[in-house]
Every structure is written in C-alpha cells, then in structure tokens.
Amino acid sequence: MSAGIPDPAAPLTPTGNLRRRQVFSKMTEYSATIAAVIAVAVLVIVVFSVIQRGASALSLDFVFTAAPTGIGPELLGTAVIVGLGMVIAMPLGVLIALFLTEYAGNRAAGPIRLTLDLMNGIPSIIIGLFIFGLLVDHKQQSGLAGSVGLAIIMLPLIARGSQEVLLLVPSSIREASDALGVARWRSVLGIIVPSALGGIVTATVLAVARAAGETAPLIFASSLGDPSKFSLNPLEALPNVPVRIFTLSEEGNPEGFAQAWGMSLVLISLILFASLGARALLARSKRKMAG
C-alpha cells in the first residue's frame, strides 16, 4: 500500500486530505446557500419597499377615480391593451403550438421553434420601434398598436408553454383515435386541446403577467393617453399603468412619486398573484397529466 491509502481498520473519520476537502466543499455549499438567500432578500426588499411606500396611497378612490386623485383610467387602459393583446396572441400561440406538435416534422419544426426563441429574445424596446414604424408613424398612437406590441411579447411564451403541455398529452390518445378512424381535426379539437387546456391557460396567464408590466412598446404606442378620462376605445391612445409609472419616475415630483408607488403596488400585486396562481395551476395540471 502506498502513501495516502488509509489502514482498512482505522476509524471512519477523515483521513489524508479529506478534512481540507470537506472544509472547501462546505464553503462552496454555504456560498450557494448565501446566493439563494441574496436572491430572495432582493425580492423581499423590492416588494417590501413597494408595499411600504405604496400602501399609504391605496384607497378605493385611488383605484376607481381618474386623475388627479386616482389611477382608474390607467388601470382600465392597461386592462384593455393587455386584454386585446391576449386576444391576438392566445389563438395564434395555440395554433403555432398545434402546428409544432401535431403537424410539423422535425425539419419544419426547427425554424418555427427558432423563430419563437428569437422572438422571445428580441428586446421589447425594438418591438416598440417596430410598432411605431408599422402602426403609429404617419398615423396616431392607439391602444391597439400597444396591444399588437404586447401580443408579440406574449406569443412565444404562449406558444412554447402550450407546446410543452401538448407534448404531455399521451401519444396513445392520438394513436387510439387514429386507429378508430377519427379525423385528425376532430381528435385535435375534441380531445387533445381540451386535455391540455389547463396548461394552455396557465401559459397564457403567465404571458399576460409578463406583458402587463411591459413599458417599452407602450411608450411608442400609447403614451399620450389622457389620465383624467376613462376610455375603452382602443383606436385612441389609452392611459396605462406602466407608462404612467415611467413618466412619473422621470419627473422628480414627490406627489407623483407617491402616486407611482401606489400604482407599482397595484401592478406588482396583480402580477405576482397571477403568476403564483398560474404556476400552482401548472404544477397541478402537469401532475395530473403525467400521473
């Protein structure tokens, strides 16, 4: 036996360099734990700051009246813009997902998947420039233009999310209906999509939560809305929460800051609850489908 080989009968306490290696290993474990603590701490600090500064602004008036006392028009505008965006993006996203899982072979699916990944990676400010060039330039700002911008942000999220759950639908279901001579479109619309619906809805909610806070496309498409007027008309510029927070934060006026904190609190609560709920739902429906 050469050096460094312990006596077989020695106690099972560290021999050789093991004590040193264990110390190093423990240190790396602690660092990894600390990293996780840092991330959670940052989340807590941000959310806590928003609650601490925003809570005092909150009241029924704040949520339901127009400027100068409330942010009702902004909330309504955000709801209209995001809702319309969802109406555009969800069917397209699901159809693309269906194309990927039900129709496309590997060669056709590759470019589509790449497109979705690239679309997901495009900075939202670029989408804003695009919307400006396509729908606003030489025309006027509109909530609808904003919706299109947000739809581009939502589309890849919905498509990839739906694709993931569609892939979880057991292939035995497809084979069974093929074997029974059921037409493809009937089994797709009648069986496959309904059984993946939970996951599709979750993916959509997550995408909406992500898009609801997006500011960059809206400063091009819908930044000139009048915050003192409730409006549902998507063909004109609609006041909305993210752009309002952005402008108030640039103005340097303490009253505006207070209002912006209040809006931040409302927005962040909506987004966090929506995405937490959606995640819980997703975990459940995935378990159900996998189990």
Binding site: P11, L12, P14
Partner: peptide, 20 residues
C-alpha cells in the same frame, strides 16, 4: 460495524466511508 466502527456512527464521515 466496519472493522468494529459503526458505519452510521456520529463522527463518521460518509465521504471517508465511500473512499474505503
């Protein structure tokens, strides 16, 4: 017991156990 030492004893290092 491994050579009389409890493998699941309190001061046993499991890395050392696997090394041996």
């Amino acid at each position: 017991l491994y050579h009389g030492h409890d493998i699941y004893g309190g001061n046993v290092d499991q890395v050392e156990v696997r090394r041996r």
